[in-house]
Nucleic acid binder design. Structure first.
Length: 950
RNA sequence: GCCGAAGUGGUGGAAUUGGUAGACACGCUGGACUCAAAAUCCAGUGAUAGCGAUAUCGUGUGGGUUCGAGUCCCACCUUCGGUACCA
């Protein structure tokens, strides 16, 4: 056997490691290029076949850029803080640091099996104290800064204090949680606690009351995805929103810059749109409505001031502070019940269901522009976190308001006439105002301005820019995250620990469960909490994004103990040229990273405004989840599973779906996937609680070994496409695929599956095609009896044409990340080269270099077999030469009325008139023209000819 | 619900700016080699009708624009991702 991939892989993995083939350093003589993967969370399930999709793509690209003579930084690391390790620790008592270490070891082994060209000397881990020292350090800088609107950048809080001492905050223009004006004298008279409270309103890292998902029964705070239908996913206990003092980051201060600077970066339009919508900038009107029989005023925000004469009711969020006050006694019961109901529903549930819910408070507001009485309702579709938590509802021109009005029989007053704007929806700001007092007859945009002007002149509101983007909650009641470098005095005033005490290391614990009062597990360690006399420590930890929002900078200088990265390193590497990762990070991670980067830019710590120049979201490789249907009700105390083919659609509700390990399933992933007898026995052994379960199939019920002969029965499973995850027992390990087919084949197969941005379920159908291709490619160089076939003969023109055509196509496709078509071009090359019996080194040696980024192992082997020195991965990429690609003839499709009737070869430079004449003369075209008039002939030179007849 | 993406043969997918739909693979069918199998090689393969040349239909559904639509516009259906404490 002449191609032994496992030996080749072993040999070159060692060679690359021994020779530091993939290590990089600053080299002023070369242009830098920074290729970055989103670093993984090292989960206990190990790397699955979905992860490498992006890694292989970035590997090919960085290898290509190296061969184009760039100095390429291509590092990898681990986002190693996180919830799963902590939950695992709670279950098993194994310290998260230990399980994380073990998982990382496994991940690195799996990554190296794929032949990825990472510079491992630059590895970073977010849970490493040497790393999170700087995560804490950045937090400390945010605490010490506020956002100065005049300067349009972060500014030191010391400057702000100086300003307060001079003029109070009368002339301060800054992002602020709560604007309350005070003079210098008032400032000086404040207690330390009061001063601290005021400064908290300005700091970029600040404390405020936030709401968490609190589960009393579990005694813990839950993540949103641990809450389903208002109860905990684990155990099904009730979950409520609980107010707690939490750290936040004032990302809203950067909203405008996050929006505007997107013009400078090369991201897909869809991604930019997602970010824009997430920021959700809107211009509108903030205004007050008076309340009937109440001196308070209700503040609302609207983007459609033009519709103010169509307001027929007001809606408050259930959490709105006015709800209690406004509820009349006769409505108290209903409103209280409604608030309780809304309290344990997630934001997604509250806004996504079509169900319309709400209650009347019994109170009325007054429309300030026409004095009309407007009933005030409470409904969960209004969120407390956006705008002011209260809206003026205009059922004529807002879909949700209309649905609400229909359900509760509320008035509708049409205010916009859209007859001149066909196809215009209620969201489009166009039309002519009707039934609208002084703005009747105006166009919508004019009406908006007119109403704003009127409201401002009445002194009851002002024009305002709002963002959907909210400040980032920065506190987690968890163990496995970065501790805060913060202590509190007895008045709960927060102080930073000095920089030279960083990192604040995570103290060791024996018990990782949260403490029962909703505090983080760290609160259990009294010695640590009270280490500073007269102070107590912050016991919450930072969220995942604290470490992952700046890791790309640390790679530039990962071992620096004095700075998060040296000026020199950042001046050279600048920013990430090409970032690749999953769409699931399209908003959160990217938004936070951009915010962190901009903050560091303001402080002159980084040289660029944006961290990621070009970004591509690779699709997900999904798994197939195999479920068994289990009757929700036990029958005579016995669990009963029913084959999927026996369950009518309308009875599916009566069954629970139990995921089964895919290794037990026959015809896994297909519509006909099933368990046979052996599979069921495996399942019963695996899930002990179902050891005595019964399995109903169309040929009878299987109850275990002694239940008669059912040798050929099929118990059908339900196959669904979804995430590859430990909880679904459907993880496919790349190691197994690599061992069976070889790393080069695995790499090329994942790339050949389709466009990099597209998601698709994992499937090994077709991997043989790539295996065959690699063997055939190898076969161009090495005969079956291991003879070297390449000779020094000169290549013919047609051979060179084939080579240069392939180089051109592959080069262009790599640039466009169209790896699947690049591979197909190489397949075409191999097919043609076989037919042409090519053996000239002039053609074949460049092909080794061309395939090198895709198949690093066999290309390295062939390179050395050819007697070449050094690594093929340090060679220059082949260039194509146009002179070999010239064609003299073009084949023209000839159509009649747009239907192709034939194909004809014509010289490349034949004039239009000749093409037309020749086409019309063709016999088979004449046939289609019989008895018709030729209206015109469309000739697109180099493309096609179309004859229009009637 | 809202935001984003996708939908093309039996399957994965290909198709610069609207210009030869189905490249390249998988699978399948037939053949060569073989005692046989595997491997390899050769030929065929969207559907329907026809011996055939050929004709008609065909890119989720329904409309539209155009000499010409997978590609552009409108409406809809289905699937996937995100939705702020999973990472």
């Amino acid at each position: 056997m002449s191609l032994n991939f496992s030996e080749i892989e072993k040999k070159w993995k060692k060679y690359w490691k021994d020779n530091n083939t993939y290590n990089v350093d600053i080299d002023e003589n070369k242009k830098k290029y920074y290729v970055l993967d989103m670093f993984p969370y090292p989960s206990g399930a190990g790397l699955h076949v979905g992860h490498p999709l992006g890694y292989i793509a970035s590997d090919i690209y960085s290898r290509y850029m190296k061969m184009k003579d760039f100095n390429v930084l291509h590092p990898m690391g681990f986002d190693s803080f996180g919830l799963p390790a902590e939950q695992y620790a709670i279950q098993t008592g194994i310290h998260p640091a230990d399980s994380t270490e073990e998982n990382i070891r496994r991940y690195k082994g799996q990554l190296s099996n794929l032949g990825l060209n990472y510079d491992w000397s630059r590895e970073v881990r977010t849970s490493d104290p040497g790393y999170y020292k700087w995560t804490q350090w950045i937090f400390a800088r945010m605490f010490e800064h506020y956002y100065n609107i005049k300067l349009q950048k972060a500014d030191s809080i010391d400057n702000l204090i100086k300003e307060f001492e001079k003029d109070g905050n009368l002339f301060v223009d800054a992002f602020c949680s709560e604007e309350r004006k005070f003079t210098a004298a008032e400032w000086k008279n404040m207690s330390d606690k009061e001063k601290d409270n005021v400064l908290m309103n300005y700091r970029l890292a600040y404390r405020k009351i936030g709401h968490v998902n609190w589960c009393e029964a579990l005694g813990t705070v839950l993540a949103n995805d641990e809450v389903k239908d208002g109860v905990s996913e684990r155990g099904g206990h009730p979950v409520v929103k609980k107010p707690m003092n939490q750290w936040s980051l004032r990302i809203t201060a950067y909203a405008e810059r996050l929006l505007n600077d997107m013009d400078e970066i090369d991201w897909s339009d869809s991604l930019k749109t997602m970010q824009r919508n997430w920021i959700g900038r809107s211009e509108g009107l903030q205004m007050f409505f008076e309340l009937e029989g109440n001196s308070e005023k209700l503040e609302i925000y609207t983007t459609r001031p033009d519709t103010i004469f169509g307001v027929t009711f007001m809606v408050l969020s259930p959490e709105h502070p006015f709800v209690g006050m406004l509820t009349k006694p006769e409505y108290k019961k209903e409103v209280t019940e409604y608030r309780n109901y809304a309290q344990n529903r997630s934001e997604i549930e509250r806004t996504s269901e079509k169900k319309v819910t709400g209650v009347f408070t019994g109170s009325y507001a007054i429309n300030p522009l026409n004095g009309k009485k407007i009933p005030i309702w409470v409904s969960e579709y209004v969120l407390m976190d956006y705008g002011t938590g209260a809206i003026m509802a205009v059922p004529s021109d807002d879909d949700r308001d209309r649905a609400f009005a229909e359900k509760f029989n509320l008035h509708v007053i049409p205010v916009i006439d859209k007859t001149n704007y066909p196809g215009s929806t209620s969201k489009d700001k166009e039309g002519i105002m009707i039934n609208s007092d002084f703005i009747t007859g105006m166009e919508v945009p004019d009406a908006i301005n007119a109403v704003i002007e009127r409201v401002e002149s009445l002194g009851i509101g002002k024009k305002q820019i709002n963002y959907k983007l909210r400040d980032a909650n920065f506190s987690r009641q968890r163990y496995w995250g970065e501790p805060f470098p913060v202590i509190y005095d007895k008045n709960e005033v927060a102080f930073l620990l000095p920089d030279d005490e960083l990192p604040v290391e995570l103290p060791s614990l024996d018990e990782f469960k949260p403490s029962t009062d909703g505090k983080s597990p760290l609160a259990r360690n009294a010695g640590w909490v009270n280490e500073y006399e007269g102070f107590i420590r912050e016991t919450d930890t930072m969220p995942g994004f604290a470490g992952s929002s700046w890791y790309f900078l640390r790679y530039m200088d990962p071992h620096n103990e004095n700075e998060f990265a040296s000026k020199e390193a950042m001046e050279y590497w600048q920013d990430v040229d090409f970032y690749i990762g999953g769409t699931e990070h399209a908003v959160g991670h990217l938004m936070y990273s951009r915010f962190y980067h901009k903050f560091l830019y303001d402080l002159n710590f980084v040289p660029t405004k944006e961290p990621f120049k070009r970004l591509v979201n690779q699709g997900m490789i999904q798994g197939v989840i195999e479920f068994l249907y289990l009757k929700k009700e036990k029958v005579n105390e016995i669990s009963v599973f029913v084959s999927a083919d026996l369950i009518p659609k309308d009875e599916v509700e009566d069954y629970a779906k139990i995921p089964v390990y895919i290794g037990f399933v026959k015809e896994y992933g297909s519509l006909n996937s099933y368990l046979d007898k052996a599979g069921i026995d495996q399942f019963r052994n695996w899930r002990k609680e179902y050891q005595n379960a019964e399995f109903v199939t169309s040929v009878g019920t299987y109850k275990g070994e002694d239940s008669g002969s059912f040798d050929n029965f099929k118990f059908y499973t339900l196959s669904e496409i979804g995430k590859m995850s430990k909880r679904y027992h459907n993880v496919v390990n790349p190691d197994d695929v690599v061992a069976k087919y070889g790393a080069d084949t695995f790499r090329m197969y994942e790339m050949f599956l389709g466009p990099i941005e597209q998601s698709k379920p994992w499937d090994t159908k077709g991997i043989d095609g790539i295996g065959k291709f690699i063997k055939r490619f190898w076969g161009l160089f090495v005969s079956r009896d291991d003879n070297w076939l390449v000779t020094d003969t000169r290549a013919g023109d047609d051979e060179l044409k084939l080579l240069h055509k392939t180089i051109k196509k592959v080069t262009e496709d790599i640039k466009n990340l169209s790896f699947n078509t690049a591979i197909s071009a190489m397949m075409v090359f191999v097919n043609d080269a076989k037919k042409m019996n090519i053996n000239s080194s002039e053609v074949l040696i460049p092909m080794i270099k061309l395939i090198a980024p895709f198949a690093p192992f066999i290309s390295e082997e062939l390179w050395h077999k050819a007697g070449m020195e050094g690594s093929v991965h340090h060679q220059l990429f082949p260039e194509y030469d146009e002179k070999y690609l010239r064609e003299s003839m073009v084949s023209y499709p000839i159509s009649v009325n747009g239907k192709k009737r034939g194909v004809e070869q014509f010289p490349k430079d034949m004039p239009k008139e000749d093409l037309q004449r020749k086409a019309l003369e063709l016999d088979y075209i004449q046939k289609w023209l019989q008895g018709k008039n030729v209206l015109k002939v469309i000739v697109v030179p180099g493309r096609m000819i179309n004859i229009v007849v009637k």
